[in-house]
Design a protein around this nucleic acid. Structure first.
Lengths: 145, 145
DNA sequence: TGTTGTTAGTTACAAAATCAACTATTACGC
DNA sequence: GCGTAATAGTTGATTTTGTAACTAACAACA
């Protein structure tokens, strides 16, 4: 949308991003919900632990930009399902170090595979350089703050 | 992310889209919340009515891909604030035709302006052709279903 | 004209997100 | 050390969303 006078709200970037995000998340959401009964918050916490290894709730919050109460409840749910364990940090006893169990890692591996193949079905919509540009732009937008 | 073996979940398109969408929506969200006490669902309904003129709840649902209960509640809230009126369609009495009041149109005009200038601050991050490509790709992703 | 099925929209109840208050621990200033 | 402020995380109350059941109106067709 030419950045001149007539600006059409249907081209409003946050709106377009939301539409694309919702639509593209749907199919994957179905999978982790149906397969493991997980919520989006729980998937996200699991994802960060699987991707980055042991983290505290605070770390996850900073990386995923999730509020601490969401994380607290997601961690509790994942712990109930024995997908992670908590260990009190002995140097700073306010902190809990979260680790995936082997069951949790198995779930992560499974969903990682699903994500990879789903990602492929999305990305083939575009020529490779465009997909790469898209990735860069989204990263930049995610950092706006 | 090269579509070969090593796929990194931080490049998972739905994840990137969600991060970018949330981050880029935030500042605008603050505005309509602070200025008019509106929720996102309410802003969206107002936006569609302002952009397209008289519509039924059903129409809005189809365009915005919002569930009818969300729309029903958003319409009720906007009506309470006298931002819209409902008229029963005489040819099909199940339908309600929604119209913005002049107050509603004023809110729309105001937020349209805010959106335009906010959009600009986002879009200048990229060269014009890239921004245009981004727009096209997001539209395509929003249509996936 | 029934009778059956569909559609637009609302409402009630359950699930989840948000916000504020709370506990326990650490950090800072003196 | 002691008192105050800040931090990690939890819990409870309120708000918002999601799901399913519901009402009212229309459509199709015997």
């Amino acid at each position: 949308m030419p950045e001149n006078q007539d600006f059409d709200l249907i081209d409003f970037l946050p709106y377009l991003l939301n539409q694309a995000a919702e639509e593209s998340s749907l199919a994957f959401h179905q999978v982790y919900k149906a397969r493991y009964g997980m919520l989006r918050t729980e998937w996200r916490v699991l994802f960060h632990l699987g991707r980055y290894g042991a983290l505290t709730a605070k770390d996850i919050g900073a990386r995923a930009k999730m509020h601490k109460t969401k994380i607290s409840r997601a961690v509790a749910a994942l712990e109930r399902r024995r997908f992670l364990t908590r260990t009190r940090d002995q140097r700073d006893k306010r902190l809990e170090i979260l680790n995936l169990t082997s069951a949790g890692r198995a779930v992560y591996a499974d969903l990682h595979d699903v994500a990879r193949s789903y990602h492929q079905t999305l990305v083939v919509l575009f020529p490779p350089e465009d997909a790469e540009r898209l990735r860069m732009m989204l990263r930049q937008l995610a950092k706006i703050s």
